[in-house]
Design a protein around this nucleic acid. Structure first.
Lengths: 236, 236
DNA sequence: CGGGTTTTTGAACGCACTCAAGTGAAGTGG
DNA sequence: CCACTTCACTTGAGTGCGTTCAAAAACCCG
C-alpha cells in the first residue's frame, strides 16, 4: 500500500533525541526507524498489532471512529510519545495514525519487547508505568468535556506550547500542523467555533494568528481561561 | 481512618464468582478479601499505591478532581472490574474509590504481582491486555462527549443493564446504586438534565422509574437513541 | 410529625451549533 | 499573465439544547 523508507542500517539509539523516553534501547531492540512523509499513514484501525512506535520527530494524528462512524481525533502525538499501547489487548490497532508533517518514528517489535521483559525488571516497570500513565492521560482528556470552547482551545494551545518547549523550541511561537477541522474534531467543536475562539483571542490581544502560525502573547490570560468559568469577553 | 474487615483466613479463589476475571489466582496471590460497607472508601486519590483490586460483588464509584477541583465521577466499577491500574505509573492513586453499596473486593499486592510476572508469561500477557483494554475503555468514554443528553443517559442505562445481565441478574430491572448527582456528574450533565431525560423516557413509555429502581421497557428505543441524531420527542 | 436531603418540574438565558455567505491563497489551464 | 477552480478559513445571523435560577414535591430518618 504505502512505501516505507528505512533509514540507514544502524539506527544508533545513543544519539536519539528521545532516547530517554523510548523503550527500545533498554530492551536491546534498536531496530528499524521509519521516516513518514506528510499525510503518510503509520497504521490503520483494525490492522494486526505487531509494533509499538516511539515518535522521534514531527507530529502525528491519531483517530478512531465515533459512535456514528465518523472519525474522531484522539491525540496529536509528538516527539517522545509512545504509540500503539491501546492495541495490545485486542491484538489490533484501535486507532489509525497519520503523519501531519514529515516525521520519524522508531519501530519496537512487541514480541521482542515481551520476550525481553522477564529478564529486565527495570524495563518491565517502565513499560507498566507507560501503560498506566497512558490511562491517566486518557482520563485527563476526559476532564475537558463540558468546559467552554475557549478553555478547551486554550488548553490545547498551551499543551502544544509546552511540548514544543520540551523539545527545545520556542514556547511562544507555534506552528499548528493540523487543520482547523482537526482541532475542532479533537476538541469536540465545529470549525466555526474554533475559528471564532481564535478570533476572540486575537482581538483580545492574547495571541497573534497567521494561518497555521500562531504566537502566544499573553500566556497568563490563556492559563486563566483554563480554570473556572472565567470567560472571554470581546470587550476585554 | 476507616476500619477494614477481612473475611475468613482462607479466601478460596476457586469458588470466586469473578475467578475468570481476576489476576490473583494465576499469580498465586489469593490473599485478602475486603468487605466494604456502603459509603466506605477503598482508597483515596494521592494515597500510596500498593494493591490492585478486583471487585467481587457490589458497586463502587471512582472519582477524581476536575480542572476546578470539583469531583468528577469517572466510572462505576462492578463485579469483575480491576481497579488501581492508573496508579502504577505515579505510585499514587489518581482516583478515589468508595462503595455505593455493600461490596466485596479482592486485594492483589502489586509487589507480589510484579514478582510473579517474569515467571508467568501467560499471566504477564493477561496483565498487559488488562492495562491496554483499560486504555481503550477510557477512549470509549471519550466518545460520549458532545452527544445529546438522552444518548449519554441511554448509554449508561444499557451499560448498567448489560453488566447486571453478565452477573446473572435480570437485564431489564435495574437498581441504580448511585444518586442522580453521581449520574449527572459522570455524564457531564446537571441533576436537572438527568431528571428531565429520565422523565421523558418515562413519559414515552420506554422505562419505568421508581426512585432508584428502574425498569427497561423498550430497550430497542434506548438503543436507537445511542446512534445518530435520533432525538427523544415528548410527543412520541 | 418535622427537618433534611433528594428528586422533580418550570421559566429564561447563554453557548455552541447550523445554515449561509464571504475572503484569501494556492493551483490549473487558457 | 490572468480568469477560473478549489480548498481552508473567517465571519454573520438565527436556532436549539442544556444550563442556571427558582420552587415545589417526594423521600428518608429521627
Amino acid at each position: 500500500m504505502h512505501i516505507l523508507t528505512l533509514d540507514g542500517p544502524e539506527p544508533r539509539c545513543h544519539d536519539c533525541p528521545v532516547r530517554a523516553a523510548c523503550l527500545a534501547p533498554q530492551a536491546g531492540l534498536c531496530g528499524c526507524r521509519r521516516s513518514l512523509d506528510c499525510d503518510r499513514p503509520l497504521f490503520g484501525r483494525g490492522q494486526p498489532f505487531a509494533f509499538l512506535y516511539t515518535v522521534r520527530s514531527g507530529r502525528l494524528k491519531l483517530w478512531r471512529p465515533d459512535h456514528r462512524g465518523r472519525p474522531l481525533v484522539t491525540t496529536f502525538p509528538a516527539a517522545g510519545d509512545l504509540l500503539g499501547l491501546d492495541a495490545i489487548g485486542a491484538g489490533r490497532h484501535a486507532c489509525s495514525a497519520v503523519a501531519l508533517e514529515p516525521s520519524e518514528v522508531c519501530e519496537i517489535p512487541y514480541a521482542g519487547l515481551q520476550a525481553a521483559l522477564p529478564g529486565a525488571p527495570r524495563l518491565m516497570r517502565r513499560f507498566h508505568a507507560a501503560l498506566s500513565e497512558e490511562i491517566v492521560r486518557e482520563q485527563a482528556v476526559l476532564l475537558q468535556a463540558g468546559r467552554p470552547a475557549g478553555a478547551r482551545l486554550a488548553g490545547l494551545l498551551l499543551d502544544l506550547s509546552a511540548r514544543q518547549a520540551a523539545g527545545g523550541g520556542d514556547a511562544d511561537r507555534l506552528r499548528l500542523p493540523m487543520s482547523r477541522a482537526d482541532i475542532g474534531n479533537h476538541l469536540g467543536l465545529t470549525i466555526e467555533s474554533v475559528s471564532r475562539q481564535l478570533g476572540r483571542m486575537r482581538t483580545a490581544g492574547w495571541i497573534a494568528v497567521d494561518g497555521r502560525d500562531l504566537t502566544l502573547l499573553r500566556r497568563d490570560r490563556l492559563q486563566a481561561l483554563l480554570a473556572p468559568g472565567g470567560e472571554l469577553h470581546s470587550s476585554a
